[in-house]
Nucleic acid binder design. Structure first.
Length: 585
RNA sequence: GGCGCAUUCGUCUAGGGGCCUAGGACGCCGCCCUCUCACGGCGGUAACACGGGUUCAAAUCCCGUAUGCGCUACCA
């Protein structure tokens, strides 16, 4: 394998491009179910949120020398030419092996580095998940780092929300959270070293100067890059100082070079330096910019693999340059595709349940969300769509991350959520439901004593629910006095005479029923149905409405059993009363 | 404007020259089950962006075009 990342100017060779292997093609070799990674997961599988969850202590500054350099060898990379050699016959160029997709097998030190400037939305959560999966899968380390160098936009609430969302998802981090705002010395030190080596220079130009440069380049159809003058005379400098000008520090890009990223998901991506401007590394107030801080931290924290959104791809060469100028080796990169809203635009608050916490509030459960997130931009094979978290940990590999952006589909999440809920035992479902209802304030509204009743409804609601927030509409009628919903009343009102006959018939039989069990209720109602010669729907639907006031509820027999004899009969009579009133009017 | 990335059913995707008259899942439609809504079962609808090239053979490789997205800040 060539050195990934590639030094500037380096030429990259693909070993496979030289046709030298005469070994017979391995046709029909099914893709190995998983790459070698699963072997070492057993030991690292405490997938349950355990260790570092909530470990909020700040580990002090890390410096490059602090920990042993992580293994960088690629000897263990799985080189996998899918499908094997194409042609056994005359070797033509068209038969060259396909691009190799590597994966990560050695213990990886990865990081999730959100900027606390808003909600953790599903795009960020997905990135966090992928990193976490790689860490757990390889027996590596998951680092959480807050990129809060933008003091204006970073907020404590946002930071807290990120922690809450990650904890809910069970994405426990092993180190951190580090805050860049608390690592000033690290960046200052790095900038000093860059100054000393001449990698950066003071740029005295005004904003107007730079805008003019960019504008000129643009009109010239050239890359809109900016380069500061480095040949000011002493007199110039003296004048600037007199004027009170303060320089920014720019990275002096080696204009003739190029940087190649050997990306895990995109393959080799090359950038000519001529199109990269001398980017600012330290602002005039001395604070670091993103491209400096991110690079310095990845290096200082010994990050071996940077798995992040594709929006960072274009900035990657800058970060690689910084790290190299510091004498380091950049991490390897995997740029995952963006997640878009239904309108194919970048995800934002406008897109409904775009934040992780909103998903929870709407009654989606953790495992379903994880499952859905994992399938956004990643797949295991051509069939499998359900995964437990443990299975994801075992099977995830960056080699199977897709390259194109994905639209997040709530309908699909609904399906996964419902499917997941139905796999739970009644006990587990009850626990999840009660927890969610408590969080939603259900017991505040209906009283703490209702938990027992909620649990008794579980068998009736479980297979009907897709989201936990549907409980209220399905079973809410049980917890309040009879409230006739307009659409339900309309059904009875549509044929008052029939309604009176049918509801009255049901009431008569139930009133005389000796033992109030679901089976007995069912028998007697069905018997009455036959006696009246009515069809099931015409007879049974009014019964539901009579006691629930709704057209949507748990099953009718179950509902009556749950309500209890006295309350059921009371509601029947109330409904009959209203019907009689209407009839007499 | 420059640079980069991407493009398979409405959506998520499988696919890496012949296993593809393109597979799965969600959605949608129909049927069955049925006390509503669901669930479940069965069946159906629907895609290789376009144009060239390479090849006996292209969804797959190459080139171009189009479109979308990203970066292009003293934002991250």
């Amino acid at each position: 394998m060539t050195s990934s990342g590639g030094t500037a100017h380096s030429v990259h060779h693909r070993p496979g491009l030289t046709v030298s292997d005469p070994s017979p093609p391995e046709y029909d070799v099914k893709r190995p179910p998983v790459s070698a990674v699963s072997a070492n997961t057993a030991a690292s599988m405490p997938a349950t949120a355990s260790s570092a969850m909530g470990r909020r202590t700040m580990t002090p500054m890390l410096t490059p020398g602090r920990r042993a350099a992580p293994p960088r060898g690629r000897g263990s990379d799985v080189l996998r030419a899918r499908g094997g050699p194409r042609a056994a016959r005359p070797v033509s160029f068209a038969a060259m092996p396909p691009p190799v997709r590597r994966t990560i097998t050695e213990p990886a030190r990865v990081r999730f580095a959100p900027s606390p400037t808003g909600l953790l939305h599903i795009g960020g959560a997905r990135t966090a998940l992928f990193n976490w999966l790689v860490a757990r899968n390889t027996g590596g380390t998951f680092v959480l780092r807050l990129e809060d160098t933008d003091r204006e936009r970073s907020t404590a609430e946002s930071e807290a929300q990120i922690y809450r969302a990650m904890e809910w998802l069970g994405l426990d981090w092993d180190e951190g959270p580090y805050r860049q705002s608390e690592r000033d010395e690290v960046y200052a030190d790095a900038v000093e070293r860059l100054k000393a080596s001449g990698a950066v220079y003071a740029s005295w130009e005004t904003d107007a100067d730079m805008d003019a440069q960019r504008q000129a380049a643009r009109e010239d159809k050239r890359a809109p890059v900016v380069r500061g003058r480095r040949d000011w005379t002493d007199a110039d400098l003296a004048r600037f100082r007199d004027e009170g000008r303060v320089p920014v520090w720019r990275f002096g890009v080696d204009v003739g070079g190029r940087t190649v990223i050997d990306d895990f998901v995109r393959g080799e991506v090359a950038f000519e330096h001529a199109a990269i401007e001398d980017f600012v590394v330290a602002r005039s107030d001395g604070t670091p910019t993103y491209n400096l801080a991110a690079a310095v931290d990845d290096h200082a924290m010994g990050i071996t693999h940077a798995i992040r959104g594709e929006d960072h791809l274009s900035n990657t060469p800058k970060q690689m340059m910084v790290i190299r100028a510091l004498g380091g080796t950049p991490p390897e990169y995997a740029h995952v595709p963006m997640i878009l809203g239904p309108d194919k635009k970048r995800l934002s608050k406008r897109h409904g349940a775009a934040s992780v916490e909103e998903l929870r509030d709407q009654g989606y459960v953790r495992d379903a969300v994880i499952n859905a997130l994992a399938l956004l931009g990643w797949s295991y094979d051509d069939k499998t769509t359900r995964f437990t978290v443990d299975e994801l940990v075992e099977r995830f590999t960056v080699a199977r991350i897709s390259r194109s952006p994905a639209v997040f589909d709530l309908k699909k999440l609904d399906h996964i959520n419902g499917r997941y809920l139905r796999t739970l035992s009644d006990q587990e479902f009850g626990d999840a439901l009660v927890e969610w209802l408590r969080h939603d304030g259900f017991f505040t509204r209906h009283g703490d004593g209702t938990e027992d009743l909620v649990r008794r409804t579980v068998p009736s609601v479980k297979r009907k629910m897709t989201r936990l927030n549907e409980y209220e509409t399905l079973a809410g009628w049980l917890f309040r006095d009879l409230e006739m919903q307009p659409d339900a009343w309309a059904v009875l009102e549509g044929d008052v005479k029939h309604a009176i006959q049918v509801v009255g018939g049901g009431l008569g039989r139930l009133d005389a029923l000796p033992d109030w069990t679901q089976d007995a209720i069912k028998d007697v109602l069905l018997d009455q149905l036959h006696i009246m010669g009515s069809n099931a729907r015409d007879f049974l639907e009014p019964q539901r409405i009579a006691i629930t006031g709704s057209t949507v509820s748990t099953g009718i027999y179950e509902s009556l059993a749950l309500l209890g004899r006295d309350e059921s009969l009371r509601r029947y009579r109330a409904t009959m009363g209203r019907l009689a009133e209407l009839w007499n009017a």
